[in-house]
Design a protein around this nucleic acid. Structure first.
Ligand SMILES: [Mn+2]
Ligand SMILES: [Mn+2]
Length: 304
DNA sequence: TTATGTG
DNA sequence: CACATAAAAAAATGT
DNA sequence: ACATTT
């Protein structure tokens, strides 16, 4: 064993090699990541609680190998909650459920930079309580990307759905809709496809629903396929494996016109949370049924 | 990151 | 003991 | 069955 070990949180979670540099350009260490998650953990766990979690690990830093891990590590302590989830084509995974900040510190110790979570919760894995529109630019500028997000919000509100937006810290934005847990992934995905299709028909120069990169032709991909069983989205307030350590950050629709996908970083977010609070604090109280929006979307498509 | 195998 | 190596995801879509 | 994308 080599390097400094630190302890954090009520469980005195050990973080080994705390001085190991994971972000060479920024000098950020594993200890910095663990301390960040310790600080924002109480807010972050609102978005991971009750959801199967998958880990994006970089044990040798962001220039090393990327490991996407679903099953809980052998070394994960017993106080960390787990859930057994069936795979679609048979078999099972045992995944972490992050209920408390100490779990994030442990994950950081394992080299996890970015936790990803399901759109459904452990007590009903088949019925999501979130719908996501993942806006992925081709080579579009930030103005086009913002425009894509505003178009998405406008259509969702036209059909009666609330919409929340966050930076991903990577290339795009995510637009989230809180749902009542009435519909299966299949039905939610069909609805999301309808929304994405109307968006691309309204703005054919700007938006596309084509999954194949070569068919996207410089447009913003409205990725509705995230709304599927066992698919994940980056957890709000998680760190991304890119220079400057950008953070996936919930923002207001007003702020959208002032920031890009990497507008907030590990250095800004704790202070932002302290002064402005969490922009999504109300998302849990806005869960909506798709029944009426489905009819309104159908009316829109038949021109009424 | 960690467990395991080899000289 | 020092060092090498393996392993850590899966769903939807289209051909 | 396989490649692509996430
Ligand atoms: Mn994306
Ligand atoms: Mn995507």
């Amino acid at each position: 064993m080599s390097g400094r070990t630190i302890q954090l949180g009520g469980h005195r979670v050990e973080v080994s090699r705390a001085d190991k540099v994971l972000f060479p350009r920024d000098g950020l260490t594993k200890g910095d990541i663990a301390e960040y998650y310790h600080r924002v953990g109480s807010t972050l766990v609102r978005y991971t609680k009750d959801r199967p979690l998958a880990s994006e690990r970089y044990p040798d830093g962001i220039e090393g190998q990327r490991i996407f891990q679903k099953n809980v590590s052998a070394r994960t302590p017993g106080w960390v909650r787990r859930v057994e989830v069936p795979k679609r084509e048979g078999g099972r995974n045992i995944q972490v459920v992050c209920e408390e900040p100490d779990t994030l510190v442990h994950l950081a110790d394992q080299g996890v930079l970015t936790p990803h979570v399901w759109l459904s919760r452990t007590d009903d894995l088949e019925r999501p309580d979130r719908m996501v529109f993942d806006l992925d630019p081709s080579d579009n500028g930030v103005e086009e990307l913002r425009s894509a997000a505003h178009h998405t919000r406008r259509l969702l509100e036209e059909v009666g759905l609330p919409a929340f937006v966050m930076t991903t810290g990577s290339r795009g934005f995510h637009v989230l809709v809180p749902l009542r847990r009435e519909d299966t992934f299949h039905r939610v995905r069909e609805f999301a496809r309808g929304i994405a299709t109307v968006l691309s028909e309204r703005s054919p120069e700007l938006l596309t629903v084509e999954q194949r990169k070569e068919d996207r032709a410089g447009r913003v991909f409205v990725d509705y396929l995230r709304n599927s069983y066992a698919q994940t989205t980056v957890a709000p307030y998680s760190v991304r494996a890119r220079d400057t350590a950008p953070v996936a950050t919930p923002i207001s629709w007003r702020e959208l016109d002032e920031v890009g996908p990497r507008g907030f970083t590990l250095g800004d977010v704790p202070e932002r949370l302290a002064t402005h609070g969490d922009e999504w604090s109300g998302i849990g109280n806005r869960a909506t049924s798709l029944t009426r929006p489905r009819r309104r979307l159908a009316e829109l498509r038949s021109g009424s």
